[in-house]
Design a protein around this nucleic acid. Sequence first.
DNA 1: GTCTATAGCTGGATAGAC
DNA 2: GTCTATCCAGCTATAGAC
Lengths: 195, 195
Amino acid sequence: MTPAKGDWREARRQGARATLLATAWEMVREDGLAALSLRELARRAGITTPTVYAYFESKNAIFDAMFGEAAEAFAQTKVEPLDTADPHQNLVADATRFVEFCTSDVARYQLLFQHPLPGFRPSPQSYEPAVRAFELTRDELARNGVHDARHVDVWTALMTGLVDQQISNDPGGDRWSRLIDDVVRMFLAHCRNEP
Amino acid sequence: MTPAKGDWREARRQGARATLLATAWEMVREDGLAALSLRELARRAGITTPTVYAYFESKNAIFDAMFGEAAEAFAQTKVEPLDTADPHQNLVADATRFVEFCTSDVARYQLLFQHPLPGFRPSPQSYEPAVRAFELTRDELARNGVHDARHVDVWTALMTGLVDQQISNDPGGDRWSRLIDDVVRMFLAHCRNEP
DNA sequence: GTCTATAGCTGGATAGAC
DNA sequence: GTCTATCCAGCTATAGAC
């Protein structure tokens, strides 16, 4: 058994890590992923730059931890059960959650689904929750009778397209997110007609 | 009338500018937009850093000129006439050109349609060809009986989604670009059913 | 674990000679 | 227009005292 003293230390350590990550999220939300600097991160957290290295071995280790948090948050959006017994309505709800998840934190979306950081690849551990979450979307589509891999790809393109246009051309608005209903109807009609 | 000597000088100057821009495109294609550095640009072009400032007043001026070239190239994809008399087939051809244009040069696509450079806004002159080109897509949709603004937004989301997934998850392949046919059929059927 | 100090690099931009 | 030389700022990361 680990002694209690060690637990305290470890808890303190994890708390400090969490504080740094929260501060890092603040920064990338304000100025984009590329603008994360360890100096500014340390300054905001009230420590000095070298101390950051007591908690993360490199800048990429910070991004990896952030990626892990983002993937976990994404997986979390899938566990709360959808409300209705109607598969169509559940798919709409799933899409709504997805678009909301992405547009509510653009930096998180970019870190998770685009690859805007040259030289950074998430570790398998950080990546795993995202894969798990994607499987659940496949299940949701299957309950709507959508099994064809091509149709699944059309679905991901549709979701990404709505998010991308919303972020790029109407940030903070709902010009594209309000189209979810139409788009789901269009998609399911298409899959039914061309199985 | 401008004397011939001035014309030579001006032509030389424009040629040097063009060389620098071509080199800049090379660099951003290799390493992304954020990786453009004036030192490296000068090195590759065989001049020194201060000389770059003889042709562009700042780094953002270079990005603006690149944006202008990208917008002009985009407009150019719209002027070659589409082949058939069938509006549906023309829309497919238009979509194919668009996806090809975007996926064949990711950096150009990002510069033109996403906004990945904090602090950079294209000048109106550079932006104008892109607006012109978008109007032509609206016309193409109108010839297919699509007039509703919501439907136009669904169209742009579809195109962006295909491009985005193709770039992010199958670079160099055709996993999403080959879905254009299906997607256009899906879209037009939807617009016909819900006018 | 936290600090001071600093190495070592890269960046955009400018001064001034030629 | 082109150069050398330089300024000033930013960055990641490390050494070593405490």
